[in-house]
Design a binder for these strands. Structure first.
Length: 662
RNA sequence: GGGCGCGUAGCUCAAACGGAUAGAGCACCGGAUUUCUAAUCCGGUGGUUGCAGGUUCGAUUCCUGCCGCGCCUACCA
């Protein structure tokens, strides 16, 4: 609703200014929320207009105020020095629309969006860094879907790389296990934990004797031959670990539609098709000398002119050695960036090849997750060939991501390149204290750092399932003591919802570019700016209605609070404290929009917290059920119902559900 | 060396697109409701936004230079 009004205001304002000041070039119109409610609901700084309209800011503001005429949903405007035009929303009008749960007409965006996230190497258990990725990605998917977009969720599986090879080495050369033994281990409950430890041991084994690295090379080579025993073992391990990742993420309500695997990209020769096109377009050049002699290289992203050369020479600009990114090695094999280019051409439907598809995992809600295959099933959904893509990948990979984008540009697919977004975020590290708690010995230097990077290779980190288990135990203790009369399963279910809420909120409350220094004390907190705080506000709202023997949503639908009633409680002295709740409630889709256009889900967490905070203060100040003025009681109940609805809505976009009691 | 990013209260973080008195949570101190359950609420302490310049009516935000920190910079994936 707020967003709807903002757009209406912007359009009207532009129209008015163009008509009132013909010929003037208008700067971009900025409309922002004022710092305080008393000032109004929209603030328009008019300073930027002063220059182009050659008029004093206050005069422009006054002209607009006096002459723009009535706008539906807008109650009035005020000029505020030194140069703001503050706009007040028609409160009763908005409250009526909100109470009726009226959806503002949305401009239906078309075209499918592909969001890729999680993408964990299938050789060890998922850790907290992977959780941040998956939660950011999943929340972004929910944001897009809330905004009416069609989204496919993909989780890219690198099942042929060194990381998987290392675990294969661990099983076959350190533990000397047979394929049958590995198979039996892989069916054990937390096989990914087993691999986690083994992976760390393999890394040590390499360090003990560099000769051992040759085993890795052999194994890596073996994996590429689909018919080999090594490949079969790799497939067995990676599939079992992948299944564990899917299960772990399912605990957090994170689902996928399709799991494209590198093995299929390899064996279905995606690269060959891409290679031909890249050569034709001159994106790749063959090096005949220097350290990259015999390699096909391209210009590393962000190094010098990627646009057309200024024309003095037709010759290809020589790329200096250090600006070269090797795509095809001198032995003819392709590196991962090359595979990624091919894969992204497929995503945009530019490759001319497709995967085979078969079903891999069925979620409790009957939704199927598909996986790539050499020979797929006849009937399958259509993946790829999308309009836009978002890749949720941490900031360390931004150069590689940009190189893929440059390759698309080089191929002439500028539109595709423009619709390729690297959803970049910073890593999750551990505080030194946390590392010590986990039993790691720290160097003196490490102790002074504010955070320490996790390392799967060293087995250094907090596993996703462990963290979730701890959160559940901790929440369960609280629930047990608060609700001893409930059944064990009932209490566990509540504790799980709280744990998931705490975890998802925790990962979303930081902005993307902030490194999360993970600390158990903070992550396990259920007080203050946390998920449970917001969940609790909803529980309180629900409980008011329970006591009143009414359902909040039907109450809203059937309520016959008139515009005059809303006017009475929302306008005038002391009304701002109520209006703040309605105003915040009106902002959900505005916030969603902001999250999408900035690829920043953290605003959503802030919104949930603000709603909860406003509600809790309101809850404390105003007894509702004992209110003797019937009209006022109806109004207060409506306020509770609307805030509750928007809070549930916001939390659900964050993938957080609310327990019946807490 | 080059590229990207960061530096805000004791700690962890906000403040999108330059805007009004830089806000939260935690911690600390002091209070509140025999209620619609205190996983709550109210108040207080706490700031030269790393430093120095510049642009602007206006800079935490943009530019330049320093200082400090992180990540990337493999014929690994």
């Amino acid at each position: 609703m707020y967003r709807h009004l903002e757009r209406r205001l912007a359009v009207r304002l532009r129209e008015f200014l163009l008509q009132r000041y013909p010929g003037a070039t208008l700067p971009n119109i900025v409309i922002e929320p004022p710092p305080k409610v008393e000032l109004g609901d929209f603030a328009i700084p008019v300073f930027p207009f002063a220059k182009s309209l050659r008029t004093a800011p206050l005069k422009i503001a006054e002209t607009i105020r006096a002459e723009i005429g009535p706008i539906e949903g807008i109650a009035g405007m005020q000029v505020a020095p030194p140069g703001y035009l503050n706009v007040k929303i028609d409160r009763a009008w908005t409250a009526l629309a909100l109470a009726a749960n009226q959806k503002a007409p949305t401009t239906a965006a078309v075209g499918k969006i592909l969001v890729e996230h999680t993408s964990i190497n299938p050789n060890k258990a998922a850790h907290i860094g992977h959780l941040r990725n998956a939660i950011l990605g999943d929340t972004f998917v929910r944001l897009l879907r809330y905004a009416g977009r069609e989204v496919d969720i993909q989780n890219y599986i690198d099942n042929t790389g060194v990381q998987v090879a290392d675990v294969v080495v661990g099983f076959t050369h350190i533990e000397k296990k047979s394929r049958a033994e590995i198979e039996s281990l892989a069916s054990q409950p937390r096989f990914d934990y087993y691999c986690w430890d083994l992976y760390a041991r393999v890394s040590q084994w390499y360090e003990q004797d560099k000769q051992n690295l040759q085993i890795r090379a052999q194994t890596l080579h073996g994996i590429e031959d689909a018919a080999s025993e090594t490949a079969a073992i790799a497939e067995l391990i990676s599939t079992a670990v992948l299944r564990r990742h899917i299960e772990t993420m399912d605990r957090l309500d994170i689902e996928y539609d399709f799991l494209p695997r590198e093995s299929e990209i390899l064996h279905l020769h995606f690269w060959d098709a891409a290679f031909a096109k890249l050569k034709d377009a001159g994106v790749l050049t063959f090096e005949t000398q220097g350290k990259n002699k015999g390699c096909w290289v391209m210009r590393r992203a962000g190094t010098g002119s990627t646009t057309e050369n200024t024309g003095d020479t037709e010759e290809l600009v020589k790329i200096s050695e250090e600006d070269q990114k090797v795509i095809v090695r001198s032995n003819g094999t392709v590196g991962y960036v090359g595979k990624d280019i091919a894969y992204h051409m497929w995503k945009f439907g530019l490759l001319g090849r497709d995967f085979g598809y078969r079903k891999f995992y069925r979620y409790p809600n009957q939704h199927d997750c598909w996986i790539s295959a050499m020979q797929g099933e006849k009937e399958h959904p259509h993946f790829g060939d999308v309009e836009e893509i978002y890749n949720v990948i941490d900031a360390r990979q931004s150069e590689a991501q940009n190189t893929v984008i440059e390759a698309l540009r080089g191929l002439g697919h500028n539109e595709a390149a423009d619709h390729y977004t690297h959803f970049s975020y910073e890593m999750v590290a551990l505080t030194p204290r946390c590392a010590v708690e986990l039993g790691y010995k720290l160097s003196e230097e490490d102790k002074t750092r504010s955070y320490i990077e996790v390392s799967g290779r060293k087995g250094f980190g907090v596993k996703a399932d462990d963290l979730l288990d701890q959160l559940i135990v901790s929440a369960k203790n609280e629930v047990d003591s608060r609700h001893p009369q409930l059944t064990e399963t009932g209490r566990l279910s509540i504790a799980t919802q709280i744990a998931v809420g705490a975890l998802r909120y925790f990962m979303l409350k930081f902005t993307k570019q902030s490194v999360i220094a993970f600390d158990f004390k903070e992550a396990l907190s259920f007080e203050g700016e946390t998920g449970p705080y917001s969940q609790y506000a909803v529980v309180r709202a629900t409980s008011i209605f329970k006591k009143a023997a009414a359902d909040p949503d039907t109450f809203l639908r059937d309520s016959n609070i008139s515009a005059a009633d809303f006017e009475r409680f929302l306008v005038g002295e002391n009304a701002d404290e109520f209006w703040e709740l309605w105003l915040a409630s009106a902002k959900t889709s505005y916030i969603v929009n902001q999250c999408i256009s900035t690829t920043e889900p953290a605003y959503l967490a802030k919104h949930a917290f603000q709603l909860a905070q406003l509600f809790n203060a309101f809850y404390h100040r105003h007894p509702i059920l004992s209110e003797s003025d019937e009209k006022r009681k109806q109004f207060l109940l409506a306020t509770v119902a609307v805030v509750r609805r928007e809070l549930i809505r916001t939390l659900s976009i964050m993938g957080i559900t609310v327990p019946p009691v807490m």
